[in-house]
Amino acid sequence: MTEVANINLDDAVLVRQCWQGDSAAIERLILKYQNRIYNVILKICADPDDAAELTQDTFVKIIENIENFQGRSSFYTWAFRIAVNLTLNYCRRNVRIGFSSLDAEQVPNNSQPGRLLKELLSDDSSLDPAVVAQDNELCQILVESLKKLDDAQRAVVVLRDIEGMNYNQIANVLDIELGTVRSRLSRGRKKLRQILEAILQ
């Protein structure tokens, strides 16, 4: 709790310095958040080049509008709101993301990622998350699975399970009700499991 408070205090100081035209403060804000924002965008849009460009656009928009930032929400949720909105708009324009076939990405059970995935989905899984993280192919399967979710569900799942936001922060970023966060997250996780099971079959 103290750490979060300190992070927020740092943000407030940096934002105030940005208001005064301090370019060093702008750079510090970019360096502080670029990896987290890039990761969230990448998991939602699933394309590294597009994610890089959207991250860049996000920071340009943040800097251009930082004069209008009133501090009613934290800078953290405000910045992620810009990032997620830009990304979701981009996804809506590029509908090809939602139409890729499941069959094309089926993984053989006897392959390394197939075995890992089967282990993950088994009822008595004791797989170390570090092992999953080290397998690039498995990670790619997960990213492709996320792409099968609709945009709204994907955004909630990514913000919760990848960025680690709490429900209130997600509601703030997406400007939705807390109940909507709960239902979208529930449906998203359920669908994701179904997708992964379908990939294994």
Binding site: E27, I30, L31, Q34, N35, I37, Y38, N39, L42, K43, P48, A52, T55, Q56, F59, L120, L121, S125, P129, A130, V132, A133, Q134, C139, L142, V143, L146, V157, V158, D161, I162, G164, R189, L192, R193, L196
Partner: peptide
């Protein structure tokens, strides 16, 4: 499991030229 599944995904570093 599903939650762990996603949480275990590695954090990718942003391209260095973003700034």
């Amino acid at each position: 499991q599903c939650k762990m599944f996603l949480s275990s995904m590695p954090v990718v570093e942003a391209p260095p030229q973003i700034l």
